[in-house]
Design a binder for these strands. Structure first.
Length: 863
RNA sequence: GCCGGGAUGGCGGAACUGGUAGACGCGCCGGACUCAAAAUCCGGUUCUGGCGACAGAGUGCGAGUUCGAUUCUCGCUCCCGGCACCA
């Protein structure tokens, strides 16, 4: 073998070998134990960045590890190919999104192949392929039949200059990013999927997902946000105003009600009250995001309307308030300023009355005039509440709910924070919604035999509305029911639809007669799903929902799509931007910016290389196309090879942790691989190796052999259970350090070295597959190391005669003792107390207690 | 604002179940090899004091529990992810 490590030669050779032997083609063989390992598929933004490299390397390590454990592994790859960036690119360059997207896919596929990932490319899919998205349409129609898909109005960002709907990302500081115009909120009709029907099941399902990170399960549970409470109806002149509350016990303290600006009562109040109308108008400005709504100053206006308190009959004023969300509950709240902090602040601000109705069990009610914050506890008892006085929370809620129910003014109810999933997008580059609008027949579903509704691929968006709506060939269609002239729906689907079931399609690839087939039953659920923590809620929740709907339609047997989940931390990089006078934003890649740092190491100033003018540092953020802060792996791969890039990415931090990008340390990864290579070359050049006789080892050989098997155990656990690839690599590095100290001239020296070397190659194989492929063959093995069996631990090699224990005095390290590994407590204690370093600290003091932690330490408590 | 997570040497990180803080690597310092450089190899490297043996301090900040806390509890600060039309 070459005694130089040459990744530029061995990497293409290994890849060619795997290609020629179809090593990573997954066979649908249901007699074998399967392992479906899936990384979240990428958006084809143009080129890979280090976040992708990290994600796909982790997936590849896990795939190859399970493959070496003998499992039938499926690791597919595809493209989340619809979406906004393609339209933005089209506006910038005039290239149709279809061409831009397919060019990007070709480029990024080549990048993935260069990195040597063991992917089954025969199953590749792109969500913009009609063969894929036709099933979105087909299943949308099934959902529509089952009442899961339905139509209602929803709020969007409206750019009044471009006359177009903007994504949240396209609204910067309340202005459209292209036009700089102040954005307005608009209500338009949209299709929704009834995910709230599954809310309880989606919460309950989390319990069984013990292969998911606890934090993700918590986030999903909080997102769904189940709360039990009472819907209270306040009678008024034309009906009843419904509000939902979890604190019905405080009903007697309600002093007004507040409704959202979009609420029908607000609209009615505005009709003859210009102040209310002006306020509603004001609420209609700015963005639609919850973050924006939650951080704005809480404001409101009174209306001339009142509602009747359902228990006392008192008239309560109706306010319109900007903090009441139409999307949550009934779009109205009862205000109990004494016992809700937001209401309290609102009352102080507008001089509204405060009425205390809960007191601490052993205290007096707070004085409304002097209290400084709301009294929030549920552990008190009611006061100033007439017949309910003295009741504690649960009894008070029950009594009040029951009285309300008797008056038809309230009912116990469960409310979710989760809202139904709006899937309509007023955009071109997405999956067409298969519906036709007919003057006579109304909304008509496209018949199954006319699917897919093909998206024309030659349009070029210009930022002013959806070009699909201006495309006659697409829009003009005969009504499927009556044949009259009709119009196609021009909204397309949210791209989360595409990603909610792609993992099923990989398992049913090539079937053009059905969305999924029996192969999905074999491969699913995904045994290991790997992707960024940014998808902890939406993508993962939508997928869990979608699969349940497919289950209920009889298409798959599974409840949950992903058995184990590994959420990768974000790879961060600096973000630099510049805003022009109109408020438009442009991002600069960190590679094209020159910075100075202050004495704390933070970015103090930054200028663009192209013009030397200042740019703004926006802190650190996820590498992404939109922030233009990605680092392309090409340079690193060209300079060091794919194996070094992979090794470095794995070694630099554990996968769940977010990572501020830096290539410092890449040299260490390269150096390590060169050492492994050189050691193997030297070993092989020294000729044949005798068979290992474990009984004939000298002390040094026995130690190295023990270290070899300790390393096998450690790496198996780190990869298989802990996913800490950094510590797995560190363990192999330690073994290699020991090997380079080891003298092979003893009787069994070469044999023990051979065993250690083979272990190193096998243990590294999932992480640096090309080098190990070559090394494995150099060590005299046939085939590829990717097909070799994972090494097993020889328990007899792990046995030790003596162990080292640390001795502390009062918790401080004072010495070390070596004891027989089967020494009992008394022996250990005696040895510890006899240790000279320990004795020094025991002079003149009394030993009060000796704590022995077996195998670890002794702590002498003295004083 | 709300939900979730994070913070350890000059840097990335390790310490898995409350038990030796700093494994492994980078960088740096010194040495070997070399005409020289690169590469490679050897040694050192948390901070403070000390020639040294050694001692003291130390895991974002402030409290607490414990024989013992990076790890558990409470209160903060800063950073990251998500907040429903970026994907």
């Amino acid at each position: 073998m070459d005694d130089q490590y040459r990744p530029d030669q061995i990497e293409p050779a290994a890849q060619a070998w795997w290609g020629a032997h179809h090593t990573f083609r997954a066979l649908d063989d249901d007699t074998r134990e399967k392992f479906y390992c899936l990384c979240m598929f990428p958006y084809p933004s143009g080129k890979l960045h280090m976040g992708h490299v990290r994600n796909y390397t982790i997936g590849d390590v896990i795939s190859r590890f399970h493959r070496m454990q003998g499992r039938n592994v499926l690791q597919p790859m595809g493209w989340d190919a619809f979406g906004l960036p393609a339209e933005n690119a089209a506006m910038a360059n005039g290239v149709p999104p279809a061409k831009w997207t397919r060019d990007n896919i070709a480029y990024m596929r080549a990048q993935l192949q260069k990195l040597g990932f063991g992917l089954d490319w025969e199953r590749e899919l792109a969500t913009c392929d009609p063969a894929y998205y036709r099933w979105n349409q087909w299943f949308f129609l099934r959902m529509r039949e089952r009442g899961i898909a339905y139509k209602k109005t929803g709020v969007v960002n409206w750019d009044p200059v471009d006359q177009t709907v903007l994504a949240n990302e396209q609204v910067v500081d309340g202005r459209g990013w292209r036009t700089g115009a102040l954005v307005e909120r608009r209500e338009i009709p949209m299709y929704y999927l009834n995910i709230t029907r599954y809310a309880d099941e989606l919460i309950e399902g989390l319990e069984g997902l013990d292969g998911w990170p606890e934090r993700v399960r918590t986030m999903q549970a909080n997102w769904i946000g189940r709360s039990e409470g009472v819907e209270i109806r306040f009678p008024h002149a034309d009906g009843k105003l419904g509000v939902f509350t979890t604190r019905a016990d405080t009903l007697m303290g309600a002093t007004w009600v507040a409704v959202a600006a979009e609420h029908p009562l607000a609209q009615r109040a505005a009709a003859d009250d210009p102040k209310v109308a002006a306020f509603i108008d004001e609420c209609g400005r700015g963005g639609t995001t919850e973050a924006e709504l939650a951080t704005q100053e809480k404001k409101g206006v009174p209306t001339r309307l009142t509602v009747e308190h359902p228990l006392t009959g008192a008239a309560l004023p109706v306010w319109v308030a900007n903090y009441v969300l139409m999307a949550y509950g009934e779009g109205a709240v009862m205000a109990v300023p004494a016992h809700d902090q937001r209401d309290f602040e609102f009352a102080r601000k507008y001089g509204l009355p405060i009425r205390t109705v809960v007191r601490a069990g052993d205290g007096a009610p707070l004085d409304p005039d002097t209290m400084e914050e709301a009294f929030l506890t549920k552990d008190g008892v009611l006061c100033n509440s007439g017949k309910y006085d003295g009741l504690a929370f649960p009894a008070a809620v029950a009594a009040i709910a029951s009285d309300l129910e008797a008056k038809d003014c309230g009912v116990l109810r469960v409310q979710y924070r989760l809202r139904d999933w709006g899937i309509s997008r007023q955009r071109y580059w997405g999956c067409p919604i298969p519906v036709v609008h007919c003057a006579a027949c109304g909304e008509v579903p496209v018949p199954d035999d006319q699917l897919p509704v093909l998206l024309p691929e030659d349009l070029v968006p210009d930022g002013a509305g959806n070009p699909l709506a201006r495309c006659k060939e697409f829009v003009e269609v005969a009504c499927p029911q009556c044949g009259a002239d009709a119009r196609r729906e021009t909204d397309t689907m949210d791209t989360f639809v595409d990603s909610s079931w792609y993992f099923l399609r990989f398992a049913s690839f090539g079937n053009d007669a059905a969305m999924v087939d029996e192969r999905a039953a074999y491969w699913l659920p995904v045994d290991q799903y790997i992707g960024g923590i940014e998808h902890a809620i939406l993508h993962l929740l939508y997928s869990r929902f979608w699969v349940r709907v497919m289950r209920d339609a009889g298409l798959v047997p599974h409840d949950e799509p992903f058995r184990n989940l590994l959420t990768q931390g974000m790879v961060l990089n600096n973000i630099y931007s510049r805003r022009d006078d109109a408020g438009r934003v442009r991002y600069f890649n960190p590679a094209e910016v020159t910075i100075t740092r202050n004495d704390r190491g933070e970015v103090a100033s930054a200028t663009a290389d192209e013009d030397g003018k200042p740019v703004q540092w926006d802190g650190m953020g996820t590498m992404s196309k939109s922030k233009n802060n990605g680092v392309d792996p090409n340079d690193m791969v060209a300079r060091y090879g794919a194996d070094t890039a992979r090794l470095f990415m794995l070694f630099t931090s554990p996968p769940e942790q977010s990572l501020e990008w830096s290539d410092a340390g890449i040299e260490g990864a390269a150096r390590f691989l060169r050492r492994v290579w050189k050691m193997t070359a030297t070993h092989v050049a020294a000729g044949p190796v005798p068979a290992l006789d474990a009984a004939a080892l000298d002390e040094a050989a026995r130690t190295l052999r023990r270290r070899t098997h300790e390393t096998i155990a450690k790496v198996s656990d780190d990869i298989g259970r802990r996913y800490t690839f950094n510590t797995a690599i560190a363990a192999v590095m330690e073994l290699l350090n020991e090997m380079s100290q080891f003298d092979t001239s003893g009787a069994q020296g070469r044999a023990v070295e051979r065993e250690a070397l083979e272990a190193v190659v096998l243990l590294l194989a999932p992480m640096v597959p090309h080098a190990c492929h070559a090394l494995w063959q150099a060590l005299g093995h046939e085939g590829t190391v990717a097909d070799a069996a994972w090494p097993s631990v020889d328990e007899t090699a792990l046995v030790r005669d003596t162990i080292e224990l640390v001795v502390q005095v009062n918790g401080k390290l004072r010495g070390q003792v070596s004891v027989a590994s089967d020494a009992d407590r008394a022996e250990i204690e005696r040895a510890a107390l006899a240790e000279p370093g320990v004795q020094r600290f025991l002079e003149g003091v009394q030993v009060r207690k000796v704590i022995v932690v077996p195998g670890r330490l002794v702590n002498v408590v003295a004083g």
